[in-house]
């Protein structure tokens, strides 16, 4: 109880003082997760839309695989990216291991299946409604993909937020491929892990509270934008 109280006070102090080290870590966390979200969205959303509209042999296998990959343990994603980016690995010459770029890749690998699987579900319902009309207009599956992505934009925002939440809460993969290097690849979650292992549980919890507030803020902002846009566009 005492620890929880002091964690709360420490969190308030961190924010009040605008602690420079923490702000840098927070900034890196947000940039890494947003960059990963951008990459994952560019790949995952069209993939989800295509799976919603297209019927081809092996589609069910892809759908089931994506659903299974949603549960991919972050450490496994991290390990995969680690082995790829290691100097002994096939992409070693990129020199990306233990950099923010590696963390972006790991998070993107982790959340692309989530965005694809969730957007497939959302867009399949929309496609059910649109299919006859779009075919009546002469639109094939390829033309339907951008239409569904645009018309499903409000539902997809929720999908994106789910991906962002998973990316920003992730620690196992980024600590592996980023190395938790102070001032370079230390994110909120790896800092929390570090403070926990130093036994400074109140500080770790305080950092966690700050992260939660930020993620909450991002969600609230997205929700407000969505409501405004929804009111204007229907």
């Amino acid at each position: 109880m005492q620890d929880l109280g002091s964690a709360f006070m420490a969190a308030i102090a961190l924010v009040r003082d605008g602690d420079a080290g923490m702000l840098a870590i927070l900034g890196l966390s947000l940039r890494v997760s947003l960059a990963a979200l951008g990459i994952a969205a560019v790949v995952g959303l069209p993939l989800g839309a295509l799976l919603a509209v297209a019927r081809f042999p092996g589609r069910r296998v892809v759908v089931v695989s994506l659903n299974a990959l949603m549960g991919l343990p972050p450490v496994v994603a991290g390990l995969l990216v680690y082995l790829l980016l290691s100097r002994s690995g096939p992409l070693g010459h990129w020199g990306l291991l233990f950099t923010p770029g590696a963390m972006v890749i790991a998070q993107a690998v982790l959340i692309t299946p989530i965005l694809a699987a969730l957007s497939r579900g959302v867009l399949e319902a929309l496609w059910e409604e649109y299919a006859e009309a779009l075919r009546s207009f002469g639109a094939g599956p390829w033309r339907a993909v951008p239409t569904l992505l645009w018309d499903g934009r409000f539902a997809l925002l929720t999908v994106l937020l789910a991906g962002f939440g998973r990316a920003s809460a992730e620690v196992g993969a980024v600590i592996l491929v980023g190395g938790n290097i102070e001032g370079f690849t230390r994110t909120m979650t790896t800092a929390i892990a570090l403070e926990t292992s130093k036994g400074d549980l109140p500080l770790a919890l305080a950092l966690g509270l700050v992260l939660m507030v930020i993620v909450l803020g991002v969600n609230a902002l997205a929700q407000v934008l969505r409501d405004v846009a929804l009111r204007r566009a229907g």
């Binding site: 924010v15 947000l30 940039r31």
Partner: peptide
């Protein structure tokens, strides 16, 4: 105050990757 210090910290951070110190 709280909000401003957070914003001031995040804005520049949001624009650029940290250049390596060296």
């Amino acid at each position: 105050m709280v909000r401003r210090s957070l914003l001031l910290g995040l804005l520049p951070a949001g624009l650029a990757w940290p250049a390596a110190a060296q």
